[in-house]
Design a protein around this nucleic acid. Structure first.
Lengths: 332, 332
DNA sequence: AACCCGCATGAAAACGATTACGTTGCTGCT
DNA sequence: AGCAGCAACGTAATCGTTTTCATGCGGGTT
């Protein structure tokens, strides 16, 4: 019956009395509208898809948490497909989500503009998270790795550490690249005479350990070390301890991410925190904003600020948290 | 056209030639079958729902990972709704998933048999994870908290620690109850003359810290402490360090869960590990098994074993891992 | 009193797939 | 040659909702 539909949804064009009768009957019969039939005719699923790589731990759970909370607040369901480690897997997942979702949230290092074009209908709204893609066709939401890294290096220098070395992440990783740039920029600005000192790493604890040993083996030991992520900082810390060095007295150390472990190592690790829940929330809200506009929204590129968290490992006891807020830039 | 459907799906009753033509045309036109239309007529969504409480960190991400991997392997999609902290929220989420999913995976302390009966059609297959529900109507999959806790206490006693105290979890929590029982059982069996010594906790780090102080304030200090989870063990460790005690020389310590932090505290924490990915995988597979049988499968109650992980905090350097496998019991 | 307008309501089409069923055409047997 | 049987394929019904459109009713205006 048509009035039933009207009563259950908008309610416009139905007497209060009939609406009342309908709702009573509906709850008496435990009537639940059939989602598929509704989807078929409305061409909306009220579902958004999240396509994620093979992530472990805190980052994954907090991101999903942010997305999920925001989605529920907006009345959307969340279809998750994670643990993709090849581009083909991700493509297959993308295609199989076709038609089940109204929009897609994608976090994947391997996804680029061409990939999206060939695997998705261009009508499907997409928000890219932490992606190097500079597309005018898709909205992109990044973490301000550059500002975070640069703020931490600035802090280390201003805390009196004359030389700061950097343990880099994987070269192909976008976040790692940005952090590298942040390190170089801060060095150039605040310690133009100090040498740029970079050793390789790949974001694993093991690689951080090797990098720590490599740093100690060189003839001039840096006064402070900034690792491109916390896991490497933890590995590096192990190397320093093995060598009998005291952190931060002999050498200062800082990481990036603020994973939970950072608080529990000895000494507690200074690091750069990303508000992951918020990252997820904002990504979802941008996507929903696109859905609700009929005309395609101009592509946006947003950046979520991060804050430095000073603990003991960097040798500055003051609790200084320089936090940036959301800086937003949009291009046509 | 009917042959299209036949060609795309089973393929029975279609010439190889026509099937070929159809597939060619389909890929040329980038044809993707409309999920909603298929759902409507088939009455299957190929989607399973996961209803989870407000979990943080590793446990959540690994569980989802296990579920997701298994779901993709079986061709199912995964609809997630997490971060529920009240029963009403969970109920609302359950109802809104109605008709979108073929089955439901539920992990929630607050869900009991009556709750399920009143919020879900009894035709919807459900697998309960870590639930106290003893229902003949639903399959339940639990972690063997009892055996894990009991094995750890046994280990502590046999390592020569004459007295073992226990920091309990929240009384309402099913896992906490089982771990408590495991402690008592092992004490009764392996140290019948030692006193049962329990202090309260609520699974938070803070409560572990308080429990640690409380233990030290009492006149007889236990030789070892077993905390019902790792976070409390970490808090307790802080209390011991503050009091100038050395772990494990002065007092031994063990936890439960094997969260990542356990490896990084000093000394590294002995604990009981749960294979969470596997928990998720098995839960999903049980659910799928129910879906694929036409007649309702008899309700199962399965238990996933866990293994004790010996590090330094318990004062036994031997690398003994006593692992139970899956013990399965089914009732009519 | 006649007419018109607005509003509540029901009838029917549409969405895009699956599937039961009917039709066609071919093969092979008598 | 005629007929039975079978395989391939198309027609049409179906799923449950939304939405458009027509209908009928009541009230207000002239």
């Amino acid at each position: 019956m048509a009035s039933v539909s009207r009563a259950m949804n908008g309610g416009s064009g139905v007497t209060a009395a009939t609406s009342e009768r309908i709702h009573a009957a509906a709850s008496r019969l435990q009537y639940v509208p059939h989602a598929a039939a509704r989807m078929l005719i409305t061409r909306r699923s009220n579902t958004i898809g999240a396509l994620l790589p093979d992530l472990h731990g805190e980052f994954f759970s907090e991101l999903i948490r942010g997305i999920d909370l925001a989605a529920r607040a907006r009345g959307f369901h969340l279809l998750v497909s994670s643990s993709h480690d090849s581009a083909e897997e991700a493509a297959a997942a993308m295609r199989s989500m076709q038609g089940r979702v109204d929009g897609l949230l994608i976090l994947s290092a391997r996804v680029d503009a061409a990939f999206l074009r060939s695997n998705l209908p261009k009508s499907l709204p997409v928000v890219l998270i932490n992606s190097a893609v500079k597309s005018t066709a898709h909205t992109v939401l990044n973490v301000d790795n550059f500002a975070g890294a640069s703020a931490m290096v600035q802090h280390l220098l201003q805390a009196g550490h004359a030389s700061v070395a950097f343990i880099a992440g994987p070269q192909s990783n976008f976040d790692a690249q940005q952090r590298d740039k942040g390190y170089r920029a801060a060095m150039a600005k605040y310690a133009p005479n100090a040498p740029i000192h970079i050793v390789a790493g790949d974001f694993t604890e093991e690689s951080g350990y090797r990098a720590g040993r490599e740093l100690l083996a060189q003839q001039t030991r840096p006064r402070a070390v900034f690792a491109a992520n916390d896991m490497m900082a933890v590995g590096c810390l192990t190397a320093f301890k093995e060598a009998g060095l005291h952190v931060p007295q002999d050498i200062a150390l800082a990481g990036f991410d603020d994973i939970p472990v950072a608080r529990y190592v000895t000494p507690p690790l200074s690091t750069v925190r990303v508000r992951i829940v918020e990252l997820g929330r904002i990504a979802l809200e941008q996507l929903v904003a696109q859905l609700e506009k009929t005309e395609p929204l101009p592509a946006h590129a947003d950046t979520l600020g991060c804050e430095i968290v000073i603990r003991e490992s960097c040798g500055a006891s003051l609790i200084a948290t320089s936090s940036q807020n959301i800086l937003s830039t949009s291009h046509p």
